[in-house]
């Protein structure tokens, strides 16, 4: 078992899940409550990674990171290196790749809140921001937990994007899924099996947690 790859993958999943919670809350709020006529276009764009091949995303990321794109040149001038083949590059790719897994549960739980509660908060003088943090967010704790868990799990099993922009560097971009791919390519089935079992176990444990949480099988935190 390659512990370095496992630690790296856990770190990548944690960073991505945390970033997606921060980015996902305002995005989901807008999708849930905006009255704009064309908001479904943004909704569709957010869901794109669900149906788009990871190779397409990886390809565009590679081009965007490279020295032929203005964005890539700007980043290189700023940091001295390209985003491809770096941990930061993988985080950027994973955020895009797991976006719907964070936004969708948040939107659903926002929409499930009784609008009367939100209206009451506003009528009683609380600002939009205060209403969000004191009414909407506490009532959506379970949705937020699902969003974090699902984006964590989805990033944990990510493969195509990492293969396209990672460069397979041990300890930096060689995630568990890439490690499995390498082991199979090299014909080392025993090691591939061990690693795959760990990946399978972790992914299953996360999903059991999510579904258990949503069924109310476990006691809730006081704030939930």
């Amino acid at each position: 078992m390659n512990w370095e790859a496992l630690a790296l993958t856990l770190r990548l999943s944690l960073f991505t899940a945390a970033a997606l919670l921060v980015l996902g809350l305002p995005l989901a709020y807008w999708i849930a409550f905006s009255q704009r006529r064309w908001k479904f276009v943004l909704q569709a764009a957010t869901s794109l990674p669900l149906v788009m091949p990871p190779t397409v995303l990886g390809f565009y990321l590679l081009v965007a990171f490279g020295s032929s794109s203005p964005l890539g040149r700007l980043w290189t001038a700023w940091t001295g290196h390209t985003l491809a083949f770096t941990f930061a590059g993988l985080v950027v790719g994973s955020i895009l790749y797991s976006l719907p897994f964070a936004v969708q549960p948040l939107v659903n739980s926002f929409l499930a809140i009784d609008p009367k509660l939100i209206d009451a908060s506003r009528v009683l003088g609380a600002s939009r921001l205060a209403t969000f943090f004191r009414v909407i967010l506490p009532l959506s704790a379970s949705g937020a937990a699902t969003a974090v868990a699902l984006s964590f799990a989805h990033t944990f099993g990510e493969f195509g994007v990492v293969l396209m922009v990672g460069g397979d560097i041990p300890g930096v971009t060689r995630t568990v899924s890439i490690g499995v791919f390498d082991l199979v390519e090299a014909g080392n089935y025993a090691a591939a099996n061990t690693t795959s079992l760990v990946l399978l176990g972790v992914s299953f444990a996360i999903l059991v947690m999510v579904y258990g949480w949503n069924r109310g099988a476990w006691p809730r935190a006081p704030w939930a």
Binding site: V63, G66, S67, S68, G72, A84, G167, D168, I169, T173
Partner: peptide, 20 residues
């Protein structure tokens, strides 16, 4: 400094895309 391509095509393409 080494980054690994899956085969020579991907390896070459890392330079073409301006990343290596």
């Amino acid at each position: 400094r080494l980054v690994l391509g899956e085969d020579v095509s991907q390896t070459t393409q890392f330079v073409v895309s301006g990343n290596a």
